[in-house]
């Protein structure tokens, strides 16, 4: 039974006692490190947010500028996830099903957005979509502006989350048995029907998990977006940037309130992704 490659490694409980030494030392170091580096700052943020008080928190979060930034962020992240759902699925399909020159290179290229710093990605996209840029110049003739507009935010978010859908769908597609498709074909089903009725349902949980991961990543993206967005309040100001601006204004209550809301949103997305992955694991077990 293959474990889905994108899932958190779930460890089964093994009853036997280990004879290997170093348990206390390794666990102690790991817990100390996690406590100092990961949990301490998260705890400090929660404390600071609790200090803000409920009424003030609601006032900050429902202020028009904050609401507008959430609307901009959610809409652009959803569009970026939509792009990656389609492109990522097609890219995974091409990498698994077809042989062509340069396939290995294409497979390696998929990881570029994870390896490339977000600031560099933002700088590159801004250059591409500038008025005299490779993409910006032809688009300007059609009257389309991407840089310093919401479309630019979508491009930045889409770029930085390209690998998620590809890397979640790819292994599931690889593991698919050809017999199922052949059975469909034998019964006279068309390619489209086989894809719709057999292939897509099999990869759907992985596809959904990948798309959710891409969406979650886009919600928190900062580096790539600030270069290209233009950062106008109410139009192209994302939540992460508004947090940054509130800090620069020394408005720590607002920064804490917005940051803790982003943290909550990240936790909700984490729960959704984990639920989808658990569902997917059930799928994988059913096959075996």
């Amino acid at each position: 039974m293959p474990r889905p490659r994108f899932a958190l490694p779930m460890l089964s409980r093994q009853p036997r006692r280990s004879v290997i030494p170093g348990f206390r030392l390794s666990l102690g170091l790991a817990l100390l490190y996690l406590g100092l580096i990961v949990l301490l700052p998260i705890g400090a943020l929660l404390l600071k947010a609790a200090d803000v008080g409920f009424e003030r928190y609601i006032a900050i979060i429902t202020s028009p500028r904050t609401l507008a930034s959430f609307q901009v962020t959610l809409t652009t992240a959803a569009l970026a996830a939509l792009f990656n759902a389609i492109y990522g699925l097609a890219l995974a399909w091409v990498l698994v099903r077809y042989e062509f020159p340069g396939k290995r290179l294409l497979d390696a290229m998929v990881d570029v957005p994870f390896a490339l710093p977000t600031a560099v990605a933002g700088l590159a996209l801004t250059a591409l979509f500038a008025k005299n840029g490779w993409f910006g110049a032809p688009l300007a003739q059609w009257g389309i502006q991407v840089a310093y507009a919401p479309a630019g935010i979508v491009c930045a978010m889409a770029f930085t989350s390209i690998p998620f859908v590809v890397r979640t769908v790819q292994p599931v597609l690889e593991d698919m048995e050809p017999e199922l498709e052949e059975a469909g074909a034998t019964l006279g089903a068309s390619d489209l029907t086989i894809f719709r009725r057999i292939i897509f349902p099999t990869i759907f949980p992985a596809f959904l998990a990948g798309t959710s991961l891409a969406f979650a990543r886009s919600l928190g993206e900062f580096g790539a977006v600030v270069f290209i967005a233009g950062n106008q309040p109410f139009r192209t100001e994302i939540v992460a940037l508004l947090t940054f601006i509130r800090l620069e204004e020394y408005d720590y209550a607002a920064a804490a309130a917005i940051a803790v809301t982003m943290l909550g949103l990240a936790f909700i997305m984490l729960l959704i992704v984990n639920a989808v992955q658990a569902w997917h694991q059930k799928f994988a077990m059913g096959d075996a």
């Binding site: 400090a44 900062f222 804490a256 943290l263």
Partner: peptide, 10 residues
């Protein structure tokens, strides 16, 4: 899962 901005604020 946490935005780098949230990490910085924290």
């Amino acid at each position: 899962s946490i935005s780098p901005i949230v990490a910085g604020v924290a």
